[in-house]
């Protein structure tokens, strides 16, 4: 039995189809990157998996249970979600991580809850700033706090929406190493949306390309081909091999660039 089974998932918003017939499976110890241009439904897919959006048809099965049939508390014990936009508030880092125990507690936090939160903080290098206010820490540290809270939830499925967004190159890699470490250590499965294909290939096992609400390709590094990327993003690239790892390099002299510069990229913000 797979950890996650998504089958026949459709999602519409105001009669507009956002996701169409999404089917895939995910296993423990896997890091899955969802790739595709802006506005193709990547975040929507993540939200459907954690039931923040209710799918029009189809099913999402986590550890054998359909998510529409379990309580929000039970769901929160199985799936943790780190959204793209979170707010920094005047609470300590410790409190912000400890709140991850919410689905496991009734009235008050126990010694064990604190221990779990502290262990996560130490393993992610947040120990020294544990008593600082979240409003006082840097962007990289803030992103770590978000992930630490999700791990403190002790989920089997960790969902990250653009975890590397707004981070400099060092913090991008620190964050991704952290995710990799956590997945291997706890035997989780992580599904994340990414913009940077090369960062994704560094750290993921599986890649899912989405365009117009449909899965265009899903698999290991073999799906990262110039054809797929041309199909999904509409640009010509070279894929070169660097120590067995594909590196995607966009070509500079593309005839369609001139057109795009003049007319924009069909409503997308990034290429």
């Amino acid at each position: 039995m797979s950890l996650l089974e998504v089958s026949g998932l459709n999602f519409s918003y105001d009669d507009k189809k956002v996701l169409e017939d999404i089917c895939f499976e995910a296993e423990r110890n896997q890091i899955i990157s969802i790739l595709g241009p802006n506005g193709v439904g990547k975040t929507t897919l993540l939200k459907c998996i954690c039931r923040m959006h209710e799918a029009s048809t189809g099913s999402v099965i986590v550890e054998g249970d359909d998510i529409s049939r379990i309580s929000s508390r039970e769901l929160a014990r199985r799936i943790a979600y780190v959204p793209q936009k979170t707010y920094a508030t005047q609470t300590t880092v410790f409190d912000s991580v400890l709140i991850g125990r919410k689905p496991h507690i009734d009235w008050t936090m126990s010694e064990r809850d604190m221990q779990i939160a502290w262990n996560v903080m130490e393993s992610l290098g947040l120990g020294d700033i544990a008593m600082k206010y979240v409003t006082e820490i840097s962007g990289g540290e803030f992103q770590k706090v978000q992930i630490a809270r999700a791990i403190t939830q002790e989920p089997s499925l960790l969902i990250l929406d653009e975890p590397s967004n707004n981070l400099d190159i060092a913090n991008q890699h620190i964050t991704m190493r952290m995710v990799e470490h956590v997945v291997r250590e706890h035997g989780l499965c992580t599904i994340m949306t990414m913009h940077d294909i090369n960062l994704a290939t560094y750290y993921s096992d599986r890649f899912m390309f989405i365009k117009d609400g449909r899965i265009k390709a899903y698999g290991g590094t073999e799906v990262i081909t110039p054809e797929t990327i041309k199909d999904v993003y509409g640009i010509d690239v070279d894929v070169i091999d660097y120590n067995g790892q594909p590196i995607v390099i966009p070509r500079k002299d593309q005839p369609q660039y001139a057109h795009m510069v003049r007319h924009g990229v069909g409503g997308h913000h990034h290429v």
Binding site: I79, A80, Y81
Partner: peptide, 18 residues
Amino acid sequence: LDYNALDAGDDVAASLGV
């Protein structure tokens, strides 16, 4: 604690079962 979770954003709170 729900309020504390809400402070971090609606999506965070929802994923914590609020």
